[in-house]
Design a protein around this nucleic acid. Sequence first.
RNA 1: UGAGUACGAAAGAUGAUCGCGAAGGCCGCAGGGUCUUCGAGGAAAGUCCGAGCUCCACAGGGCAGGGUGCUGGUUAACGGCCAGCGAGGGCGACCUCAGGGAUAGUGCCGCAGAAAUGUAGACCGCCCGGCUAUGCCGGGUAAGGAUGGAACGGUGCGGUAAGAGCGCACCAGCAGUCAGGCGACUGACUGGCUAGGUAAACCCCACCUGGAGCAAGACCGAAUAGGGAAGAGAUGAGGUAGCCCGCCGAUCCUUCCGGGUAGCGUCGCUAGAGCCGGCAGGCAACUGCCGGCCGAGAUAAAUGAUCAUCACCGCGCAAGCGGGACAGAACUCGGCUUAUUGACUGCUCACCGA
RNA 2: UGGGGAGUCGCCAAGCUGGUUAAGGCAUCGGACUCUGACUCCGACAUUCGAGGGUUCAAAUCCUUCCUCCCCAG
Length: 120
Amino acid sequence: MYKLPKSGRLRRNKCFQAVYRSGKSYANRQIVLYVLPQHGRERRVGFAAGKRLGNAVVRNRVKRLLREAYRLQQHNLKNGFDLIIVGRQTLVNETLPAVSAALSHLCDRAKILSSKGGAV
RNA sequence: UGAGUACGAAAGAUGAUCGCGAAGGCCGCAGGGUCUUCGAGGAAAGUCCGAGCUCCACAGGGCAGGGUGCUGGUUAACGGCCAGCGAGGGCGACCUCAGGGAUAGUGCCGCAGAAAUGUAGACCGCCCGGCUAUGCCGGGUAAGGAUGGAACGGUGCGGUAAGAGCGCACCAGCAGUCAGGCGACUGACUGGCUAGGUAAACCCCACCUGGAGCAAGACCGAAUAGGGAAGAGAUGAGGUAGCCCGCCGAUCCUUCCGGGUAGCGUCGCUAGAGCCGGCAGGCAACUGCCGGCCGAGAUAAAUGAUCAUCACCGCGCAAGCGGGACAGAACUCGGCUUAUUGACUGCUCACCGA
RNA sequence: UGGGGAGUCGCCAAGCUGGUUAAGGCAUCGGACUCUGACUCCGACAUUCGAGGGUUCAAAUCCUUCCUCCCCAG
């Protein structure tokens, strides 16, 4: 239930470009969320951390935080979407609970939470 | 106690839960499931050097170009390291140095200054002589002044019209001989009395050096079309590094039109100039022998999150609270450089006490 | 990850190779012309060339170590 195998991840540059170009975006101070509907498919997700955030250690940490936050609440999300979650500058010094809260806030606004799960 | 200096080592430990990557075993036709083991660094960084490896010819010759530059050693190699020599800095422990050649040649040395390298040069002085005489002219003089970063060895005595290595002593420097040292070099003696700086300017000398890089390169599979048109060249197109040689070499190149630009592909991909311990050689860098160990292999790219306990540091009487830097493998090694935490050890100096 | 290039005034830049003056244009400020503005004319504007160290009498320039930015290769 909490697993996150490679098949649920966005892996190709093409897919990333498609989501960036055609998807809708939602943002708050910590996170930017891109959503592209893909009807009938398994939900896939990608994580990104831009060069502005800092050196390689900081960028890796941001991506791992985002992945952990997504992993722990993915069962509340609907299927049939490609998502990209991008970390922003204020995320660098945050801890996991704050990241989770920010992510669920965005998912609520994007209306991809499943009805039986509800907000965390 | 304070200040400093050198060197080595380390970069918290254990457990639980959830999750990720790889390898191997088992189950399954298969998607996959499950168990075990392993899973970031001293700098993984910067990419400043040197190698391995791959392709270009089994990488060859000459010129050009580039690099290094005290001596000896070390190494696969190096611009690294070790030991020494010389110069400079520090009271000292110790530190710094691209540190060959300026007597092979060429260039440059602004402004200032009379003059910037030629045995040249007289602005003020100094001395001698002449004159139309408180000045002017001619000559001598580089000791004094002035300029400059630098002015043709320095100090002293003699000498002289005034001066000058003109003569002498000492010092610096140069050349030669002898002695010591593998050598850089050091010491002694002799000689002629003097030769500016700059080679991180060109250069000379000695030594080294082919080019590209794992996006190298190899393989498998898919796709299209053995597409069309025009032009140049076989006393040889074209390729091979800048040129010449040499080599490869039968179809190749340029332009236009059209088509294609595709695979979460496989290998290369991790056992290596490897790590740890002991012994031996060496002042040391390092080397040899013996024994043991296997320690990441990803590809939008794994190595994470949460919690608990115990160490360590700081604050606090205590309960407790807070803290742990710099930073993330991408073919692999040897160095260098840069970033950075809190401790340990040796040595030096200053002060105080016994 | 590998390879290559560039940092000079607020902006665009010349000067670096071959060492002794930091050109020029735009912008800004002050003045003149005008009743006022524009145009035009005159004047001002870099103690230092991304940062540190070295060579030299002397460094934007030569050497070296860092920092920042840009480009190319799937």
